[in-house]
């Protein structure tokens, strides 16, 4: 006997939150991974802040040479990608797979924009012989931003996999776990940058 499954009856993932009480969006495992990542970045941020407190003049002088415009542009690019990912999840909730794929495509393009801007910034730094060993500030600047850069690359791989899934109509109400899991990771990458940018590029 066939059973008819309505979107309402298969709602747990991606359905209205109040229908089944509070729940985490995406896989539980990704949230433990996100917590581990946040902890690592948190330690890094604190280490930078306390190292700066002991070398205020050095940090201020070398921070002034950073390309703050590139940092701000990258913030806009990451926020835009995050917004596009939110819209992709909303489209999947509305059973609009094509729009979901399009929004994810937009997020991929803006994510690659971040990569290009960051590589340009690194190229300029290396031209000026800046390296991990050139100063305490540069050690933090390069290691912090490169650690984050690697996360953006992994995030892009995940976004591309989700884009491919969306094109095949894989995500719909009741079957959004994969999409929500990848989206949570991408937002974590954005969240970390929202602290990194003012801390490393602006506050002096």
């Amino acid at each position: 006997m066939d059973t008819v499954t309505t979107p309402q009856s298969s709602m747990p993932a991606g359905g209205p939150a109040q229908a089944h009480g509070p729940r985490l969006a995406g896989d539980l495992a990704i949230w433990f991974f996100i917590l581990a990542e946040l902890l690592a970045f948190g330690v890094f941020f604190a280490a930078y802040a306390f190292a700066r407190a002991k070398n205020i003049e050095l940090f201020a002088a070398e921070q002034a040479a950073l390309n703050r415009n590139a940092g701000a542009l990258n913030t806009v690019l990451l926020l835009t990608a995050s917004y596009f990912v939110v819209r992709a999840v909303q489209a999947a909730e509305a059973q609009a797979s094509r729009q979901c794929a399009n929004w994810l495509g937009g997020a991929i393009v803006t994510g690659f924009g971040f990569i290009i801007v960051k590589l340009t910034e690194y190229a300029a730094a290396f031209e000026h012989n800046i390296s991990l060993s050139s100063s305490t500030f540069h050690m933090f600047y390069l290691s912090l931003t490169f650690f984050h850069f690697m996360h953006v690359i992994l995030g892009l791989v995940i976004l591309i996999a989700m884009w491919n899934g969306a094109r095949q109509g894989r995500y719909r109400p009741g079957d959004m776990n994969g999409l929500e899991t990848g989206a949570a990771y991408w937002h974590m990458v954005d969240l970390v940058w929202l602290i990194l940018f003012p801390l490393v590029y602006v506050i002096h």
């Binding site: 991606g14 359905g15 913030t75 926020l79 939110v86 909303q90 003012p198």
Partner: peptide, 26 residues
């Protein structure tokens, strides 16, 4: 009663304020 991931209008408004906040920081 509530959408888990918000509404397009609501998230667009939040996005716009996030961009304005970024411009303020810059």
């Amino acid at each position: 009663s509530a959408r888990m991931h918000g509404t397009p209008k609501g998230s667009t408004l939040l996005f716009a304020t996030l961009i304005l906040a970024t411009i303020a920081t810059w």
